[in-house]
């Protein structure tokens, strides 16, 4: 069975650090950064990128549509 790997790209300057994506991620990929962006928000980033499946949950609930999601199949 082919495995799936995903990745997200966060538009850091537009992220408001609301934390919703962190909580809907089923594989515990996302965290809020300790640093802040230009607006003073702790932005989202991939803490555990290897666990990302590209399921799109984070982007689906992101109120500011700052997350772009990629997914690829990895041959077994």
């Amino acid at each position: 069975m082919a495995k799936v790997r995903g990745a997200i790209v966060v538009d850091v300057e537009r992220c408001k650090g609301c934390d919703l994506c962190v909580h809907v991620c089923p594989t515990d990929v996302i965290r809020l950064a300790k640093e802040v962006n230009g607006k003073g928000y702790h932005f989202a980033y991939m803490e555990n990128p290897e666990a990302c499946t590209g399921c799109v949950n984070c982007a689906t609930v992101c109120p500011d549509t700052v997350i772009t999601v990629y997914r690829m199949k990895i041959p077994a």
């Binding site: 790997r5 995903g6 790209v9 590209g54 982007a59 997350i67 772009t68 990629y70 690829m72």
Partner: peptide, 9 residues
């Protein structure tokens, strides 16, 4: 992974 052909959202 971050390539246009893998874009899903």
């Amino acid at each position: 992974i971050i390539k246009s052909e893998n874009l899903v959202f």
